[in-house]
Design a protein around this nucleic acid. Structure first.
Length: 215
DNA sequence: ATCCCGAGGG
DNA sequence: CCCTCTGGAT
């Protein structure tokens, strides 16, 4: 067993102890609502997503409503999350496809989810893991990508698909859903993009980046 | 490689 | 001012 595989086991144990409640923090009631919230979460804190989704879901509660929504009204509601024109387009077109092609139900297969405009592997992995408990891959967002690279678990920091493949080869499948939540919580708390708090980090002894930082 | 895009922190 | 936040399409 390679060094990194042992490090992953060690890291998961420590992170689990540090963030026993790590989970998806997006608020939603239904699969289509999670899909919409996840699209909104691109380059945006989930805290801000949760500020707009109550209004969004009150006004457009399901796929038919989102599909038929007035685009300008939809854009206005989600504006604070940034990229609001693209996100409104993605949410509405996905809702229309789901209504017309999938009987109003969010598809349960990766292949079908990836056909939705605005949905790539990150969003598909969130939906599959959160709604159906299915781990076909690993959710690689900005936190997961950054921390995996710092830990030396991946060789690239700019190709999320390659990062996901390398992590899938390194991490046992039963941890695929959990690892993303743990790394996201860790990214927000300590292993931040700007000024990571390495002195407080429980992974410092197994982190090349942490040992380079002074403090 | 570039564009979409707002809000908060340093 | 610059950087970052559960990205994706062109």
């Amino acid at each position: 067993m390679s060094l990194n595989v042992e490090q992953v086991t060690t890291a998961v144990t420590r992170l689990r102890h540090m963030y026993p409640d790590a989970h998806c923090e997006l608020n939603y009631e239904t699969p289509i609502q999670l899909l919409a919230a996840t699209i909104l979460s691109a380059q945006c804190t989930d805290e801000r997503v949760n500020q707009v989704t109550p209004t969004l879901f009150a006004r457009f509660p399901d796929a038919p409503a989102l599909a038929a929504a007035d685009r300008a009204e939809l854009e206005e509601i989600i504006r604070p999350t940034g990229f609001f024109r693209q996100k409104a387009k993605f949410i509405q077109e996905s809702a229309q496809t789901i209504v017309h092609e999938y009987g109003g139900e969010v598809p349960q297969r990766m292949e079908e989810l990836l056909k939705l405009n605005g949905v790539a592997r990150k969003t598909a992995n969130v939906v599959l893991g959160e709604i159906y408990g299915r781990a076909e891959g690993i959710t690689v967002d900005t936190h997961v990508k950054r921390i995996a690279y710092r830990l030396g678990w991946t060789t690239t920091n700019d190709d999320p698909v390659k990062v996901e493949q390398e992590l899938m080869a390194l991490i046992p499948q039963e941890s695929w859903i959990e690892i993303s939540h743990l790394l996201i919580f860790h990214g927000r708390a300590l292993c931040k993009a700007r000024r990571p708090d390495c002195p407080a980090c429980p992974l410092r002894d197994i982190c090349p980046e942490g040992q380079r930082v002074i403090g």
